[in-house]
Structures are given as structure tokens and as C-alpha cells.
Nucleic acid binder design. Structure first.
Lengths: 245, 245
DNA sequence: CGTTTCGTTGAAGAGTGTCAAGGCCAGTGG
DNA sequence: CCACTGGCCTTGACACTCTTCAACGAAACG
């Protein structure tokens, strides 16, 4: 997977960016916003299956997804790949390598994407000037920690159907937060990728999708998913055995 | 589990603390150290099975373990408990709730313990004064993210024996880093707690310990563990099938 | 339109979980 | 000092979920 280097100067600053609320602390007065305008120096386009960064790369920048979505992965000693998370518009990538160390994961585009490039030096500088921004970045970091707690919880204590139900509800919620339909969406990743993320084999993912569809909880057309019964999904996550007559 | 409130004023400041290198950035000149001396305002003793903090508690402090060890846990909707991590001397607790939000996990003492209490206000203040400290805290946070990557990797892609081997090697390494024997130590947690952390049942943990012992890789006496064959453990983590004639 | 990747489904098998019984150990009270 | 108690650990037999292996179908791509 070659790294893509198409870089575009950031024509429009943060001031006019629609994702502003994700990158910049809440409740900032409009005339204060100018301070944040120079944070992102460039944009970068990454095509499907290409890497934004790789484990071991020097980490001197953060990225915010502007368009499209990514997965983060690590490779095991045996060469297998474990998916650790999915990142969509507004999400921040690169937090794991903050503070001048190297990246711990690979970030791979699931589709054609565009990101904001925020040099870590700019982050540091603005943090020391603007305490609100310092809190903001640390909040981002601690949210990432909490997100991973959720992953560990799913992997450590849920059965296959429960994991998939939790996964679908999580996706639904994130689509909704971005203004898309919460009940109908297109998966950006393959069954194998979902399986790796959830600690399951791709066949198991496929089977559970089929079972949910047979029970009228969702409809599945390849990557196109429609959620018909949110309550049922929530019940499954809670560990309630489903009747299957 | 009642919360224990025995608080002692921090008699000796950070200057004389033997854990200094964990709390304060590396490479600080001795005459600069005074700036950090007031970080921890108190110590607190927590007895076995008591909580340092609970999920939902307001988070306005960080803690550094001085003595003993903790587990962090979350509760599922069904009341079950998932263990997320173990923390020993020098480790920082409370990072998940930084930035004025609430704690996302419970921190429970595995034995009688003592922690340094570091008000988050002090952290913020020192961060704005001392850029080196800012980087230090963000490094702590990003290390916590990376640690959780490791947990997800173990839970998502390793079999039972591989998980236990990885767990033992991780413990061994952490004991060694603290000046204890890397080959002989006492587990502070029960089989059930290990199982929860590794996504296994306590019987499976017990069986794998027994199998490793039968193969001469370790010896097990209740909580007392001795590692006899590090290479074998590493081979198991790497997924190599062990001959069992 | 062939080729490749991705997805679905079935049958068989391995690996963990579940249930149950018993042993070991530390602490407690007689 | 001993018996009792309760928590923790070990071990066995069995059930079940998930994986593995395999074949096939569908969509995506050059």
C-alpha cells in the first residue's frame, strides 16, 4: 500500500470549515476564532486502500477527516492484521503518536478521502497560548481512551450477535450525529474488516447479518444496511436471548 | 464497596519521591524541579477491594500509584463486570476522565494501596507554564491509548493460551521495570479477574495455567507464578502450535 | 467479458463455556 | 489447638458457539 502524497494548500481556513465544532473548542467567541484559523496548514487526499500513515512513521502531525472514512490497524507478529477502529468525518487521527513519538497504528482509507493536516507544532503552540484549546486536545485524547474502553468491553464480554448489534448501533449513532440517516446507511468496509474489528471471522459476520435479516431486524443488500428494529438490536446488546421460532 | 477517605498530607514532595521519573518529564535540570514539587497535594490510602473512584464520579484529579496495585473496570448493562486494565506503582490513574468530565471506569484496589493525589487544576496550571510538562501529560495519555490498542489486539486476535502467555509476559516485563524479579512474582488478582481482563472464563485461565505447568513452561502455586521458559511463552504468543506429546 | 474480490451458505470440527464436584488455604471462633 | 467457614482454585464431562474448509453466487473492475 503506497503512501499518497497529493497535498493541497488549505484554501479555506478553519473559520469557514463546516467541521469547525469538532476541531475547535466549543463556546469560542467569533472574534476569537481568528486565533485558530492557521491550525491546519494543508489538506491531503488519500485514495482508497492507501495509507495516511503507517505504524513506525514519525508522528509530527494530527489529521482530521474531512471526507470519507478510515480504519486503523496493527499487524501482529504473524503478519495478521487487527482492525482497531473506524474514523469518519470530523474524527481525529494520529492521537496515539502524539508528543513526538512514532505512530503505533496504520491508518488506511476505506474510500477516497480528504484530511486536514495539523502540524503538532501548531497544536503545541496554540495549547500554550489558549488554555481552552489545551483542554480541548486533552478531551480528544481522553475520549479516544474511552472509545477503546468500549472496544475492550465488546471484545471481552459480548457474544457474536451482541457484538454485531452493538456495532450496527454505534455506526447508526455516528451517522446520525453527522446528519445522515440513522436507519439506512452503506458500510464502507468489508465483512472481513468488520470481523477483524469485532474479533470474529468474516463468515460469522455474514451469518449474523443473515440471521438478523431473517428475523426482520435489518435488511442487508451487500454493503447497504437498513435497520428496521432498533429495540431488538438494543435488546440483543443487553444479552437478551432472542426467540427464534 | 465503600470509598475510603483516609487522606494524608504529602509530607515529602515530588522532589524526594522515588517514582519521580514517572510523574515528571525526563531531563529536567535539578534546579527546575522545584516547579513540580507542589503537584501532588495529598496522599491517600485505599484498602483492598475499595474504590479509588467510580464511573460517574466527577473527575478533577489524577492519581499516581505509590504502593500496591489497582484494576479498572466497567459494568455492562446486565451488571456484569469487565476488567480493562491493571495499574501498579508509578502508573497514572484517571486519565480517561481528564478535562473536567466524569470518570468512565471504576478503579478498585487489588491490595492495600497508596496513591498521590494530583488536582487537575495543578496539572493545567503547570502545563501552561511548562511546555515540557504539557508534552509529558499528553505522552501519558497517548501511551494509555497505545496500551488499549494492545488489549484490543489480544482480545481480538489471540486464542486462550496465547492471551495468557501474553499476559504473563506483560506482567513479567512490568515487574522487571520496577526492579522486581521478572521470572517470579505473585499475582495480585484472582483467576476470575484475569479471565475478565482477557475475555476468558476463570476455568479456562486455570486450565491454561495447569497446561503450561505440565509442559514445564511455568510453575503455579496458587497466586505464586514462576516463569521457567520465556522463549516458549513468546513462541505461544506468536501463534506457534506447541507440541504436546 | 473474463477476472478478481467479496459475500453467502453448508457440514464438520475445535476450542471455550457451562455445570458440577471436590480440594486447598486463610481467617475465625470455639 | 482444632473444627468450621467461605473464598479461591482445580479438574472432569458435556454442550454449544464459533471457526474451518469448501463450494458457489454476485458484484466490481479492468
Amino acid at each position: 500500500m503506497p503512501q499518497n502524497h497529493s497535498i493541497a494548500p488549505a484554501k479555506s481556513g478553519c473559520l469557514r470549515c463546516t467541521l469547525r465544532e469538532h476541531c475547535i473548542p466549543q463556546g469560542i467567541a467569533y472574534d476569537e476564532l481568528a486565533k485558530f484559523d492557521g491550525l491546519a496548514v494543508t489538506h491531503r487526499k488519500i485514495r482508497r486502500d492507501e495509507c495516511l500513515f503507517k505504524a513506525g512513521d514519525k508522528c509530527d502531525t494530527l489529521y482530521v477527516v474531512r471526507l470519507g472514512s478510515f480504519k486503523t490497524t496493527v499487524s501482529t507478529q504473524t503478519g495478521a492484521e487487527q482492525v482497531l477502529g473506524f474514523f469518519m468525518a470530523g474524527d481525529t487521527l494520529g492521537l496515539d503518536g502524539i508528543a513526538g513519538e512514532t505512530h503505533a497504528v496504520n491508518a488506511v482509507a476505506l474510500e477516497d478521502t480528504e484530511v486536514c493536516v495539523i502540524p503538532y507544532a501548531n497544536v503545541l503552540a496554540l495549547e500554550t497560548q489558549e488554555p481552552e484549546y489545551l483542554r480541548h486536545v486533552q478531551r480528544l485524547l481522553s475520549r479516544e481512551v474511552v472509545r477503546e474502553h468500549g472496544v475492550a468491553l465488546v471484545l471481552g464480554s459480548l457474544a457474536a450477535e451482541e457484538r454485531i448489534a452493538a456495532f450496527l448501533l454505534n455506526l447508526s449513532q455516528r451517522f446520525e450525529a453527522r446528519g445522515y440517516s440513522k436507519s439506512e446507511f452503506v458500510l464502507r468496509m468489508t465483512r472481513a474488516t468488520i470481523g477483524s474489528y469485532l474479533g470474529l471471522k468474516l463468515e460469522t459476520v455474514s451469518r449474523v447479518f443473515s440471521r438478523f435479516a431473517a428475523d426482520g431486524i435489518i435488511t442487508v443488500n451487500q454493503k447497504h444496511i437498513q435497520i428496521l428494529d432498533f429495540a431488538a438490536l438494543r435488546a440483543i446488546v443487553s444479552g437478551k436471548k432472542r426467540p427464534s421460532p
